[in-house]
Nucleic acid binder design. Structure first.
Lengths: 279, 279
DNA sequence: TCGAAAATAGAATATTTATTCTGTTTTGCG
DNA sequence: CGCAAAACAGAATAAATATTCTATTTTCGA
């Protein structure tokens, strides 16, 4: 494909783009992993890299040769040379983004990255393991899951919808299209995941109240102890996002959502297996 | 001299000072060189180091053992870990995921929190400040922003829609409701934010290509260098999310989105003020 | 659905690199 | 000075790592 090795990392990246999408599966895996972890190439073995990318060492070799290197060692040499006496770690990269020019937009990006990290850290503390476990149990039993969340909560709801779909868990995303009343879709025994943050959306609260009224369980993803959702008898999952100025990120909330959905998927799967064994 | 290996680089340096001046000649040479080039230890061989310090490889070995290491490899490990703590190791994470299944679901949550943190850290490295700045500029000038992203990318698109709305920036979320063709909504001069991750959505790629075809700018939020979006002439914003088993979070992507939208909002505001002053 | 071509996994091999060993030189002390 | 102990260089060996080869699987086009 190429007859000489790339001379710089930029060269390398260009080639990666040039070969583009028409790479075989493993080669693409390899390319992606290297792109996301280029700094580690400098001091890792073929075996390490292969394991990290989830492929075979020989596949790594083929990848190197595909890009014009004689082998892995030559590729590694490139990354080592580029290392140039110390790659910045996270802290100094962050600092760079901020300080380069304080009016440059990347300063903002740095703020949000840091806020996201802090929010995630907080999540470990604020989440109640018991509630989380209970939420997973309830959702694993649910014949149908109703997802409701508007405005800032809508991305979370839609992510849950995507994730549940991928794992074959029945779920409906109430997106408000056509202003249909979601109550009509709800049956006895269904479970609701209600997501809302201050200022709380009345529609979300109403639906949660309605569900509780007919004896259905409600999982609440919300922000504070004073959230109106908590006054209903729900399973509460608290997330507090650190905000940057007047803006609030969503990193922790979305991570909670993915963990929740995967846990539910896993719980269902093990339940199915058990049922199969017993029959 | 010491009966166990130092656990951190600080430990290591302390020992170096502790043994102080009463070292044999070659050992001192070695100590000095390592002290002055500690960052190179991570990826150099015994032979390299020996040559650098002007001594024999075997002397390096003796030095390592003098400090309590079992050998050179162990010492090198210390320095490598100091640079990049741990790999996002797909294979072992998958294993953890399976373990967690039987365990409490919060173990899974912890995994996703950690993955999110790492993804955010990576973002500081993979994002190209120039592209980000360019994206903000382009979007600040856009008469209309078209947001497109399906499946896993949809939450990101919807978050951008929410955020732009809040800041009074004109934007349309193409959500695919009614299977309307988004092309008809696009005018010359509009800007597209196309979001897609592997496996790439054809609809998203097509729209991006269409927009480029009529000379409109496209901002691409995508995952790897091999993304098909990159082959169009777009402003690329790379995010690589660390995944847990077969599942991939969204923490870094959503943080990038919020930072992008807020930066655009800020840029617009300052532009308006300037325009006002000039009139 | 079949057959050819490409891609892949895993074993086999070659190469590099770490470590130990041995004979020699240097150092420190009476 | 002379002896013992430590330190050393260089060769020899062991371990690890990179690379190639081959049988098997997957993919793609007719």
């Amino acid at each position: 494909m190429f007859d000489s090795a790339p001379e710089t990392v930029e060269d390398f990246n260009e080639r990666l783009i040039a070969v583009g999408g028409d790479l075989p599966k493993r080669m693409k895996q390899c390319a992606d992993f290297i792109h996301g972890n280029s700094e580690r190439i400098a001091f890792s073995t073929v075996a390490d890299l292969a394991q990290g990318a989830g492929i075979q060492p020989s596949a790594v070799m083929r990848f190197c040769q595909l890009l014009g290197f004689s082998g892995y060692s030559e590729m590694q040499k490139l990354f080592r040379e580029n290392y140039s006496g110390g790659w910045p770690d996270y802290a100094s990269r962050l600092h760079n983004l901020k300080e380069a020019r304080s009016d440059h937009p990347t300063a903002l990006l740095a703020e949000f990255i840091e806020a996201g990290r802090q929010s995630l850290e907080n999540l470990t503390a604020t989440i109640d393991p018991e509630s989380f476990g209970r939420a997973v149990e309830v959702l694993a039993e649910a014949p149908m899951i109703h997802l409701i969340g508007f405005r800032r909560a809508f991305p979370v709801a839609s992510y849950l919808a995507y994730s549940f779909e991928k794992m074959d868990v029945s779920a409906i995303l109430h997106d408000g299209v056509g202003k249909l009343n979601p109550r009509h879709a709800m049956r006895k025994g269904d479970v609701v995941i209600a997501i809302t943050f201050s200022p709380y959306s009345q529609e979300t609260i109403d639906l949660a109240a309605y569900a509780r009224g007919m004896g259905n369980q409600v999982i609440a993803i919300t922000d504070s102890l004073t959230s109106p959702l908590r006054r209903l008898d729900v399973v509460p999952l608290s997330v507090s996002e650190v905000d940057v100025g007047a803006f609030r990120g969503l990193a922790a909330t979305i991570s909670l959502a993915v963990a929740l959905s995967v846990a539910v998927g896993a719980a269902r799967e093990s339940k199915e297996k058990q049922a199969l064994r017993e029959s």
